[in-house]
Every structure is written in C-alpha cells, then in structure tokens.
Amino acid sequence: ERILAWARTLLAAHDGLQAEAASCRGQVVGSLRLGSVPLASFNPMHLLLPLREKYPELHFQLSSHTSEQIVDGLSRNQLDLGICYLDQVNASFFDVIELGTTTMGLLHDTRHFQLAHSALRWEELGDIPLGLLSKGMHYRQSLDLSFRSRGLEPMAVLESDSTFQLIQAITSGVCCAVMPLDCGLEDLSEHMRIIPITDASVLSPVGLLLRRSEPRSAIAEQCFDEARALFASMPR
C-alpha cells in the first residue's frame, strides 16, 4: 500500500509534467481528474460539456466520493478539481466557486406512481416507499435531519451507496426517492418525473474546489478559470 501511494504520486507528476508542457505551447491536453458528490443540485455535465467543446483533446476522469474524500483527494493531489458540500471545507486551503444550494424533490416513475401534485410537503411522504442513500453520506444526513425535525419516519424500503442502483429501483417500481432538483436525473427516462418538496434543501452549499498549494496541474487551473467565467454568467 505504501508503494502504491508513491506510484500514484509519480504517475500524477508525470501527467502534470505533460500538461505543463502542453500549456506552454498554448494547448490544454491530458486528463482532468474530477471528483463529485453523488447527489447535489448541480449536474457535472454542465461543466464537462463546455470544456469538451472548447478543448477537444481534453479527457475526463469523473469519480464519485463523499465530501471528505474529495477534500482528501485534492490535498493528496489525487484529484484536480472537486465538487462537494462546503460545510467541511477550510477555504484557506482551496480556491472555491460556490455553485448554489441543493434543493430537493420526489423522483418517481410515472408507470408505477401517479402523483398529481405540483409540490409536496414532507408530511405527504410518509406513505410513499423510499429509496435512500446509505447512512453516513452527507445527503442522507440532511434527509434524516429534515424528517426528524418534523417528527416523521420515512418508509425506507431500500438503502444504497449507489445513485445508479437507486435509479434502477425507481424505474423498476420498487420505490421513489428524494433527489436533488436540477441535477438531470429526470432526463434519464421519459417516464421520470420530479416534484419539488416545500422547504427541502441541504443547508450547506455546493462548490467547485481547486487546491491552492503547489504543485497544481495546469489543466486544473485552466479548467477552474473556465468554470469561474462560465458560472459567473449563469443563474444558480
């Protein structure tokens, strides 16, 4: 395990060297290692697509982690950029672009659940079978707090640490799930619908992080600057 840690550092240094050389030639070439929390009101494709269009030789390594793992990965130079919740982030060590607050809705498949609502209250979720992220994950902690503060107990029929498996359960009719608004999940199928839940949000905002300490990847710096310009002109 100790040798593996050094090997990863060497490989990251090699990729960083290649990216620096390309940057000196005015090119953005190589791989951007982006870590993201699995659920937030931000679709990473809103960042990757503009970058891909502007830098066709750029490749992406997109991985899903907890906020703590993203901070650690950035600190260890195992990630270039991270999208995570900011309540556990020491801003003195990172450059941060705040991406807004995560709001929530009930994601369901209309083939299995017919819900004629324009909005829902937390109290109306009590009789609906729900799929939840595993305990200990940031998004799950926020959900549990929302239920407990109202004296409610969700009907949890499935727990998973995989968003993909939750989506599979929804499309199979096993359950519905409280998911972030504006993250693109409802676009995965013509049968998917998401209904906003009143007063449902994660208290901590989501942000894009870049490590301040050297060495910093030239690709990471360029993409972070592009993101700053992109999101400055977009409504959160």
Rank of each mutant, 00 (worst) to 15 (best):
E68T: 09
Q69G: 13
L86Y: 11
L106T: 02
D87S: 14
L99G: 02
S92R: 11
D95L: 03
G105N: 13
E53L: 12
M45S: 15
R111T: 00
G105T: 10
T66Q: 11
G82P: 11
F94P: 02
H65P: 02
L99W: 03
Q88C: 07
V96L: 00
N90Y: 08
T66V: 08
I70G: 06
H65D: 04
L133H: 14
L34G: 00
S92H: 07
S67Y: 06
L106Y: 08
S36W: 05
S31T: 15
F113N: 00
S67G: 13
F42P: 01
Q88K: 10
E53I: 06
R111C: 06
Q78N: 12
F42L: 12
L34S: 00
L81W: 02
T101L: 14
L106H: 06
H46E: 13
Y55V: 04
L47A: 03
L132H: 11
L130E: 06
F113L: 05
A119T: 15
L130W: 08
L39I: 03
F113Q: 03
R111D: 03
T66A: 08
L81K: 02
H117W: 15
T102V: 03
M45K: 15
P129S: 08
S67E: 07
I83M: 10
V96Q: 00
Q114C: 04
N43H: 13
L48H: 01
T110L: 09
I97T: 01
V37P: 00
Y55M: 05
L125H: 12
L106I: 03
N90C: 12
S31P: 10
V89S: 05
D87Y: 08
L86S: 09
C84R: 06
E53G: 12
D127E: 12
Y55I: 05
Q78G: 13
M104I: 09
P129H: 09
F42I: 10
L47K: 05
P50D: 00
S63Y: 08
L120T: 14
R121H: 15
D72R: 14
G100V: 11
F42Q: 04
L58A: 04
G100I: 08
N43G: 02
R52N: 11
E124L: 12
D109Q: 08
H65R: 12
E57W: 11
P56V: 06
D72H: 15
L81G: 01
S92M: 07
T66F: 07
D87Q: 14
T103C: 13
